[in-house]
Design a protein around this nucleic acid. Structure first.
Lengths: 228, 228
DNA sequence: CGGTATCCCCGTCGATACTG
DNA sequence: CAGTATCGACGGGGATACCG
């Protein structure tokens, strides 16, 4: 953590926060993940070594609290960490507005399914077990098919868990990402057949209401795209 | 600018903004500097090569606009850059509250005098030329004595420009930094003789009103310092 | 004033494998 | 589940000098 040699509070904050991955770990903690392997799912491209290191740095900085009881390790934001919410929020709003274009490398199906999983609105899904599959026809086998098992808990699998499936959804990954981000709406992709749903009509109709979108989906976008 | 491989807007924002020095350059631009060498004074420990590189990156990202007219080069925040103000603001507030301790290496007299210079409240200083000196008795010769020439413009010198001096101020650097940051108030350092002023009584009395403090000076501090 | 040119080092990070 | 261990490459960035 190299010093900027400045007394400015922005500089002091960035000495900690400009370290690669750090804000994303804070974001994950803010989103509610507390266990090491859950955090990993939120930053799938980060090596466990580095995650471990960043967590230690954040603990030292007083931003994260690590507790271990009976071998159960938990990471939580401290008061200082909670107060980083406005920073994450401001960054997310800015990113939504001014970096609308995604690269192919940004389309990580693991991360998307992890986000979708975390944002299932349980009350809107029928009681009992509901199984939804997502197929990304533009992806290679292995990351093409996903199962979402919505029960008391919500689980994601990249293999067939063997349950009966109620709704099958098929859409290119990039387009579902755009829906998640709020660049597109469910009606947009349903209307033109970009999203194909298979299953009983009442379930197909209810389907979009089951999934909350990104916290930044509602951020007003820039009307005129930036001229480059 | 390594990608995080994430479609999350926070990640996309940080791909640009987590690069070392970047937020400080944005802060400087937001504070009103437009010329290359003025920007340098706001980030004195940054090499010109790197500043140049960062500016180019920011221009490419649509955050900064570079204009050149008759050899006069100016850098200004674009609309996208202006919208980074909430980010800088949130970072500064957080840094003020949660990183109160400064290291010796953070006490850069050049930066402090640059900040002081920029925040002279011209209307409160007597008309005509007023020259103020700052002496940091705890600093070595060369960065110990500073002249502030307040006229139509405000200039800082680290050498005697030869004018008659109206007020001489003497205080340890760290303490003036704390006043600037809002950790201390003028009355605090005046009362106990930490700050010694020399000059006509009316000017000595008015002196503190001549200098606005950091934009983050008024941020409410954390009552209980973080236990470490 | 507004930058380039060079050079080199060191630390960060990524990749991969493995463990209690 | 919660991390460590190891290793190598690469490139960011600091230092310094210089130029139009």
């Amino acid at each position: 953590m190299a010093s900027y040699g400045q007394f400015c509070p922005v500089a002091k904050a960035m000495e900690l926060l400009d370290q690669r991955w750090t804000m994303l770990v804070v974001r994950e903690l803010g989103a509610g993940s507390t266990q090491f392997n859950d955090l990993r799912r939120g930053v799938p491209r980060m090596s466990p070594t580095l995650l471990s290191k960043r967590l230690r740095t954040l603990v030292r900085a007083g931003v994260v609290d690590r507790t271990e009881t009976d071998g159960d390790v938990r990471y939580r934001l401290t008061a200082a960490g909670e107060e980083l919410r406005p920073v994450v929020e401001a960054l997310g709003v800015w990113g939504s507005r001014w970096i609308p274009e995604l690269g192919e490398e940004d389309l990580d199906p693991h991360l998307l399914m992890w986000d979708v999983r975390r944002n299932v609105v349980r009350e809107r899904v029928p009681d009992g077990r509901t199984v939804v599959t997502f197929r990304f026809p533009d992806r290679p086998v292995g990351v093409r098919d996903w199962w979402l098992v919505i029960d008391d808990e919500v689980d994601v699998c990249d293999f067939d868990p063997g349950y009966e499936v109620q709704v099958r959804a098929e859409i290119d990954l990039g387009l579902l990402v755009e829906v998640w981000r709020g660049d597109l709406d469910w009606p947009d992709v349903l209307r033109d057949g970009t999203l194909r749903l298979d299953g009983p009509e009442p379930l197909r109709r209810a389907f979009p209401s089951w999934f909350a979108r990104s916290p930044f989906a509602a951020v007003p976008r820039v009307e005129q795209p930036v001229p480059r």
